[in-house]
Computed example of a mutant assay.
Amino acid sequence: MDLIKVSQEPIDVNKLTDWLSQLPQDGAIVTFMGKVRSIEKYTISLFLEHYAGMTEKVLVNIIAQARERWQLSRVAIIHRVGKINVNEQIVFVGVSSAHRADSFAATEFIMDILKNEAPFWKKERTTDGDIWVDAKKSDADALKKWY
């Protein structure tokens, strides 16, 4: 049971947590919520673009990889696109399973793979103007522990 959504709508964390919590055999629910932050230059907002259809296929594949490694019940990946202001949520990953080790590992894995493989392009609006955000070396380095 997977929930994948890419949209401009705000993320309803409570609704997603309720969905993850519905199965009585699951003793562990782990969630990650990322938000737009302001660092170095004063960030006003991000604008995210994606390739509709392709992005969702990549997210389906990421969940499939996680399911091959761990015993998971429910998995949710929600990612926003469009204009997202500082301090607003940009991504939500949630995993339910019988045991916490599987949920923790799968959530970290999903985020690490998502940051490297999902086709999202970010433009940062700062007080100094707009700039496209490059991939971070630290995100690429995070993949090393999984492959």
Score class of each variant (00 low, 15 high):
Met1Pro: 01
Leu3His: 15
Leu3Val: 05
Leu3Phe: 10
Lys5Tyr: 01
Val6Thr: 07
Val13Lys: 12
Ile29Asp: 15
Phe32Thr: 12
Gly34Arg: 05
Gly34Asp: 08
Lys35Met: 15
Lys35Ile: 05
Arg37Asn: 11
Ile39Glu: 09
Ile39Leu: 09
Thr43Met: 03
Thr43Arg: 05
Ser45Pro: 03
Leu46Ser: 06
Leu48Thr: 03
Leu48Tyr: 11
Glu49Gly: 05
His50Val: 01
Ala52Lys: 12
Gly53Glu: 12
Gly53Arg: 12
Val58Met: 10
Leu59Thr: 07
Arg69Leu: 06
Trp70Met: 12
Leu72Ser: 05
Ser73Glu: 14
Asn87Ala: 08
Gln89Asp: 15
Val93Asn: 10
Ser96Ala: 12
Ser97Val: 01
Arg100Ser: 05
Ala101Val: 14
Ala105Met: 12
Glu108Ile: 02
Glu108Trp: 00
Phe109Trp: 04
Ile110Ser: 11
Met111Ser: 05
Asp112Met: 00
Leu114Ala: 09
Phe120Arg: 04
Trp121Gln: 10
Glu124Leu: 13
Glu124Gly: 00
Thr127Asn: 15
Gly129Val: 12
Asp130Val: 13
Asp130Asn: 12
Trp132Ile: 00
Val133His: 04
Asp134Met: 00
Lys136Ile: 06
Ala140Thr: 14
Leu143Met: 13
Leu143Trp: 07
Tyr147Trp: 07
